[in-house]
Design a protein around this nucleic acid. Structure first.
Lengths: 340, 340
DNA sequence: TTGTACGCGTTATCAC
DNA sequence: GTGATAACGCGTACAA
């Protein structure tokens, strides 16, 4: 077992000072050819690599990015993390991923864990618990310490920081508009409890589209489901009662469940009923029929967030005022659950 | 913006020495009541938290675990990462996730990035590129440096380290056996190119089940597909030609594609043809009909790997000889793509 | 051209 | 009881 070698070892072995070794390895001009070559050869031989921790301590820069997401089995977050990874790695940063598991407490704990020097900045999406609590003190503490923070998707106005979101209102508007343009008259909405910022925006887009087209918004056409552990019966009862000719879902999974329920009722998709969901994930793509979806461009979002964060980290000047919010355009991916 | 406070700041402010502060905050007996209380109060007020990096440097322990996986959009890896996260976090460790993107080069780069002090140990699953190259020097270097390594799922005999796998032979055997017991006579196999260790094992289980039941293994019933960018036509041509009454797929996605192709040919699942896939993911669960699958228990695998790694990290004695391989039992999840 | 000294933040040992 | 000192590994301003 050949242990990690340090500058000190090399120095002792070659009978020179540590700083000489350090300089030689950085190809400094002030070291003589011979010593330089000797040292470099030795270093290569023993595969010397500087210790990241020591460098972090010295530079006060870790080259680590902390990412806190509610979950990682959800396709959307997965793609965002991938986008972050991609950009961050290209820039020489590592990504430390923590899962809040939709819990406020875990989110706080994870943040504190990372905030004490482990990372140069945060990228995160609020947990359900945090949105519910409406308590953002842990975020505030972090930003007040001068640690850069980028929020994505599930964001809040309470915190001044960079943000990346898609235009959820527009996405829902376009989707609803498409259903209206198909001639659908009774468009149901499957959404979540109201504390989710994204659901609120999507509901808004749905309503705006109806209103703009002179259609009435009927509360009985809207089903607000708890986010966790989906209750298929609730969806089933609702859809059987409403008998809609179109359904908009604020996420992928409600859309899939809704479609199945309707099919079981003997309705044909898309002949009898059109369905559009949010999140263009694997389920939507491989459903039968495949589900028309509002793509959120998670990977792009991740890349953008990573770029914003790293730019912030690497810019000397902390110009507090200039926080930006990047708004990505959603895209309606038309598949077989709607009419051409 | 209140910057991070250090021991030095407190010491200067309270006019005591740094070591006094350090001891006071650790509630050392050798510090007087008054000073201790004064220091602790001050520390609380300014929300002092020790700097992780400095502690890492001193202890030569980072409390970080490096995880390198081929991808994170695949359900299986996602669940493993989640399992790792769960266990590691509970033990006070952070998880640094890197994606090899199935590329040998990226895997090497990521390992080197992390190996220089950033982490206490690795958990990883080999990239396709690495399995293809059959080159494991980067792993060897890491283990030779005394950095603990746990391999899961895609492992290799070339490296002596802890491992976690499921019994792939058994999983495929049981699945095939089930198809045989249903009375299926022509059981096709959708598998990948041969360099994947898991595919080899699953192929073996398939063949063993056939042989044990006195059935013939026919090469023309086996389709070996490239792993990346799935070509649906290949599957389509193959299945149209073979016309099997059952299909075993070594992963989830081939199974889904296979089912769709067969349905398009007018075959009913499971009346005319039964299908079983590997990986009990979202697609299998929500497919129509839902896909009977061999569950790999990713979360359990992740937890197990994390436990093995942390045990190793925290045990002083480096008893090289005692590397263990944990073999998890697969479970056949029966759904609607097979007959009751 | 090479070496010395110091600092990053913390802890442990030892002296007062 | 309190404080000075060294050490973790590195980089660098400054001295020789």
């Amino acid at each position: 077992m050949k242990k990690k070698i340090t500058l000190k070892h090399i120095a002792r072995e070659l009978d020179v000072s540590i700083s000489t070794v350090s300089k030689a390895l950085k190809n400094s001009e002030e070291i003589g050819r011979d010593t330089k070559e000797k040292i470099q050869a030795f270093a290569k031989l023993y595969n010397y690599k500087p210790n990241n921790i020591a460098i972090s301590l010295k530079n006060k820069r870790t080259k680590n990015i902390g990412v806190i997401v509610p979950d990682i089995v959800h396709y959307f977050f997965t793609t965002v993390v991938r986008g972050i990874e991609k950009y961050a790695n290209a820039k020489g940063y590592n990504v430390i991923v923590c899962l809040s598991d939709e819990s406020f407490d875990k989110e706080v704990i994870n943040m504190e864990m990372l905030a004490n020097g482990s990372i140069d900045g945060f990228i995160m999406s609020l947990s359900a618990g945090t949105e519910k609590n409406n308590d953002f003190n842990h975020l505030r503490e972090v930003t007040e310490q001068g640690i850069p923070l980028v929020l994505f998707d599930r964001v809040t106005d309470e915190i001044a920081c960079d943000k990346v979101v898609i235009d959820d209102v527009l996405g829902a508007y376009q989707a609803t508009k498409k259903l209206i343009d198909e001639g659908r008259k009774k468009i149901a909405l499957l959404t979540t409890e109201d504390f989710f910022s994204v659901s609120r925006s999507r509901n808004k887009g749905y309503m705006k589209a109806l209103t703009d087209s002179g259609m009435e918004i009927k509360e009985e056409h809207i089903l607000r489901l708890p986010f966790m552990d989906i209750d298929e019966d609730l969806i089933s009862d609702f859809l059987s009662a409403v008998r809609p000719d179109a359904v908009l879902s604020v996420n992928e999974i409600f859309g899939i469940y809704g479609m199945r329920v309707l099919q079981r009722c003997g309705m044909r998709v898309p002949e009898d009923v059109s369905i559009i969901g949010f999140t263009d994930g694997l389920l939507a793509k491989h459903a039968n029929p495949s589900l028309t979806s509002v793509a959120q461009h998670g990977e792009k979002m991740g890349e953008t967030a990573a770029k914003m964060l790293i730019d912030r980290v690497e810019s000397e000047d902390d110009d507090d005022a200039s926080y930006r919010t990047t708004i990505l355009e959603p895209t309606l991916i038309e598949r077989d659950s709607t009419i051409g």
